[in-house]
């Protein structure tokens, strides 16, 4: 685990098993594994949907995107669709949004402005 990235997790009340993970700090090659471990913990505890609040991400690199990709596979291992239905990103910082766009991840991972909007889209 790295002090460079803080991850807080909360479960949303409702019909669906939704877990929100709030990321604060840098998501790079050093912290990618911490994110994946937290996501696996949530999935192992029954989460079917993960919402990643990335408003506090001050740095996002390709390793972080590989981590996010790994989480989509974790949530939907047999899914061959063009979109990730079980992972949503909330309010990414400008630095994070730029990387999503540059690497084309915004074309298959939904990005929402807030939690309510993301939950309504599940």
């Amino acid at each position: 685990m790295s002090e460079d990235l803080k991850i807080s997790t909360s479960r949303e009340e409702g019909e669906k098993a939704v877990v929100v993970m709030r990321l604060n700090g840098s998501l790079d090659a050093n912290t990618q594994s911490a994110l994946e471990a937290k996501a696996k913990e949530a999935v192992d505890s029954g989460a079917e949907y993960l919402l990643l609040d990335m408003s506090g991400v001050d740095y996002l690199g390709s390793a972080g995107m590989r981590g996010i990709h790994a989480i989509t596979n974790l949530l939907s291992p047999d899914d061959t669709s063009m979109r990730s239905d079980r992972l949503k990103v909330i309010n990414p910082s400008p630095a994070a949004a730029k990387i999503f766009k540059t690497l084309g991840f915004d074309s298959f991972i939904d990005i929402h402005g807030n939690i309510d909007e993301a939950i309504a889209a599940l």
Binding site: G61, S62, A63, M65, R66, L103, S107
Partner: peptide, 14 residues
């Protein structure tokens, strides 16, 4: 997209 590959490659150089 995720469903078409195990893990992405070449992202850093891109």
């Amino acid at each position: 997209p995720p469903g078409e590959r195990d893990k992405p490659g070449g992202l850093g150089v891109h």
